[in-house]
Nucleic acid binder design. Structure first.
Lengths: 206, 206
DNA sequence: CGGTTAATTGATCCTGTTCAAACTAAGTGG
DNA sequence: CCACTTAGTTTGAACAGGATCAATTAACCG
């Protein structure tokens, strides 16, 4: 895609900000991007964690980004002008189909996350998160166990709708129950995927 | 679309069920459809409420529906064979674009709902729900105040990740604070949209 | 008008939050 | 190389919001 220009961001950098005019959207080629929504009082909800192959910054409302995006690690991505892309896709069925498929996939995952946050208990949510993350890493980045999180407890909390203390306690509980082994603060070995999946009560789909 | 065949369902009927082979997806022409995910122990999360113009039953995983759909009211919809549609859309950019746009819109709303469930308190969630529902009804069905809910307290609870008792208490609280007036059990008059929107701390987008 | 279902209200319990302190790990400079 | 610093994490104790269980009330319908 000649329309795309490669760009880089450092961990913590903002790729796009909710409420600002929509310019580019991005296809991630390296690293992790958190998509989130900020409330007036500072509360934050991460609604998606995107990695290699994912589009982000595409969703708009009244000409502005609807969510914000921040780099969880150093990130590389291709930027596309949304306006030009949309015009182009209107004449290229394959592109439009690919876009539809990406959005459909994300909608499936986001619906799943909504169900997790709405119904599961704290430890179940964290268990789901671990399975989901390890699945994505393995699938997209060929990552092998143990799982390197790349997210702080606060970031996991913002993703799961919990406080960071509760996330920490949930880790301890999963450890004590023998579901996982914690290696330092940023690595986790899942002892038995199936057993953890049963605990979570949800077939975790990547 | 000659591919589509009109069908009808009565309130409570299941349109499609998660885990069963994907056949048709539907474009709603009348009524309300709840999209949900069921957990092994009976807990349920409604991840979307679809109405006129919305596609539903499109999301699949390994050849099966990923969510279930149930009629909240009597429903009419056009059914499309997913396999044939996908093949057809691959050659028709306008169709593929329309699909992408529908999915993008739903992803935006679902992300928003995820943020609401993850961060807001019970009454704020119910306030958000009322604003969202009245917005959708007005936009899609030209409905005028007062708002007719068409959902039971249990259904609202399943949508907002709460218990039905908490939803009921939230209604009472919103009533006592003067945000809404309750008319019977199924109708609500929003006294001041803006004031309720401020309470919810989120610009509610349809 | 009685019967039935859904909604409200009350009381208690429990999960997760909040506030606070202790602990860890990874730098940083002497 | 090691003490010191700092940010992040874990753990503890008190608190609060929502869930659960139970009883009452309100709306709906034949």
């Amino acid at each position: 895609m000649a329309l795309g220009a490669a760009r880089r961001w450092s961990k913590g950098d903002v790729l796009f900000e909710a409420g600002t005019p929509t310019g580019h959207f991005y296809k991630v080629t390296k690293g992790l991007v958190a998509i989130f929504r900020l409330f007036e009082d500072g509360r934050r909800q991460i609604v998606g964690i995107h990695t290699i192959g994912d589009l982000c910054g595409y969703i708009e409302h009244n000409g502005t980004y609807h969510f914000s995006g921040v780099a969880l690690t150093d990130v590389e991505a291709c930027g596309f002008d949304r306006r030009r892309f949309t015009a182009f896709a209107a004449r290229h069925a394959d592109l439009a189909s690919a876009l539809a498929e990406d959005m459909t996939e994300k909608l499936r995952r986001t619906g799943e996350s909504m169900a997790v946050i709405g119904q599961l208990k704290a430890s179940e949510r964290v268990g789901y998160f671990l399975l989901q993350l390890s699945g994505i890493y393995a699938d997209r980045m060929g990552a092998k166990p143990p799982l390197r999180l790349n997210l702080s407890r606060q970031e996991i909390a913002d993703y799961l709708g919990l406080s960071l203390e509760t996330v920490s306690r949930a880790f301890t509980k999963l450890k004590n129950r023998g579901f996982v082994v914690l290696i330092g603060h940023d690595e986790v070995a899942i002892v038995d995927r199936q057993r953890l999946a049963d605990f979570v009560m949800l077939e975790v789909t990547i």
